[in-house]
Amino acid sequence: MRRSAVPVLLGLLGLALVALLIYAMARPGTGEDERDTLDAQVLAGKVVPAPDADRALPRLGASGELRLADLRGKVVVLNVWGSWCVPCRREAPLLERTHRALAKAGVGTVLGVTNRDTPEDSLAFARDQGMTFPSVRDPGSRLANAYGAIQVPETFVIDAEGRIRAFDRGETSIDFLRRALKLARVPDAALPAR
């Protein structure tokens, strides 16, 4: 009787594994649905308001909170990053140059969003990279999830009216930033240098 129970138990175990796999694939993810929807809409040229613009997030290395809505009227390069991320380290000087060009022209800023990181590590990273642009902490990755940011780095260019004009899922480049900032109606003189 024991030998006949083994195939039955293996069959039940197999069914349980299949059920677990189906459950894992069918349940809502942490940002995947938002990512697919947001990406498709932006790529189709639709007007997509920046998600969660009213979410107040704690400032990194400063007291108080900041909301994306507080920056309305300015172009915002929203960059999701983490101190442990090698591509984030590589793109930090470009983001700093971009911030300085936008701020000097008075048309915008870069806003960093630390994701899955400790405040201490994030602050050390920002200091090591010479980042002068504002950054906020995203406890629980709620803002990142609203943008479908399931990795780091990810960059979103938001126009002065609070609409997403372009996104770059992965390490950003000067070509992407210049093209995206033009879509957001930033004058050529305020674009970061190549």
Rank of each mutant, 00 (worst) to 15 (best):
M1V: 04
M1N: 02
A5T: 12
A5W: 02
A5C: 00
V6P: 00
P7Q: 09
V8T: 00
L10Q: 08
L12S: 04
L13M: 10
L13N: 00
L13Q: 03
L13E: 04
V18E: 08
A19I: 02
A24S: 14
A24Q: 14
A26T: 04
R27H: 03
G29Q: 14
T30F: 10
T30G: 14
G31W: 11
G31K: 07
D36T: 15
D36S: 14
L38S: 07
L38R: 12
D39Y: 14
A40V: 11
Q41W: 06
Q41V: 03
Q41R: 15
V42C: 15
V42E: 14
G45P: 08
G45Y: 11
K46M: 15
V47T: 11
A50M: 12
D52R: 12
A53Q: 04
D54M: 03
D54W: 00
D54P: 02
A56Q: 13
A56D: 05
P58Q: 11
R59A: 00
L60S: 10
R67I: 05
D70I: 12
D70K: 13
S83T: 11
S83F: 12
C85R: 07
V86I: 13
V86W: 00
P87K: 12
P87A: 12
C88W: 07
R89Y: 00
L94E: 12
R97W: 07
R97V: 01
R97E: 15
R100V: 01
A101Q: 13
L102G: 04
A105Y: 10
G106S: 13
T109I: 04
L111K: 02
V113Q: 05
T114C: 01
P119Y: 10
D121L: 04
L123Y: 11
A126K: 07
G130I: 11
G130Y: 13
M131D: 03
M131A: 10
T132S: 10
T132L: 04
V136Y: 01
V136S: 03
D138T: 07
G140Q: 09
R142E: 12
A144R: 00
A146W: 04
A149S: 14
A149C: 07
I150M: 05
P153H: 03
T155W: 03
V157M: 09
I158E: 06
D159A: 12
A160M: 03
D168Q: 13
R169G: 02
G170D: 07
E171W: 05
S173C: 02
L177E: 04
R178I: 01
A180I: 07
K182G: 08
L183P: 00
A184H: 06
A189V: 01
L191K: 09
L191Q: 10
P192T: 07
P192K: 05
R194D: 12
